[in-house]
């Protein structure tokens, strides 16, 4: 487990999923207020980049752009088929303005 800096808070517009690479791992980053969430960017169901999907504020989830499963940002669990597996959720630390992820 290493803590990797992925940028500053201002790099992540509110509610806009952003793809970053941290130590070789592709992450989907979403900022909600001063909280930053990080989940694995690869949809566990098929080949899709979750950061190309929509952030669903009501569900606190990212919707896969291809087949519509939405993954909870805190638990990683999908809300409906076709995905049946959770995505990996990564711990994010906001230190002042800088955003750090444990990968």
């Amino acid at each position: 487990m290493t803590q990797v800096s992925i940028g500053s808070l201002s790099d992540f517009p509110e509610g806009t999923p952003t793809r970053v690479e941290a130590d070789g791992t592709a992450l989907c980053i979403v900022r909600v207020g001063d909280t930053v969430h990080a989940i694995c960017d690869d949809c566990p169901h098929a080949e899709a980049s979750l950061s190309e999907g929509d952030f669903l504020a009501d569900d606190m989830a990212i919707e896969c752009p291809l087949h519509g499963s939405a993954f909870n940002l805190t638990t990683g669990d999908p809300d409906c088929p076709p995905a049946t597996e959770a995505v990996e959720v990564f711990t994010v630390t906001v230190d002042g303005d800088s955003v750090l992820v444990d990968v």
Partner: peptide, 13 residues
Amino acid sequence: DLPSFWSDQGDLT
């Protein structure tokens, strides 16, 4: 469950 399926046909899903 509500039955569902998908079909990826090239760039169309």
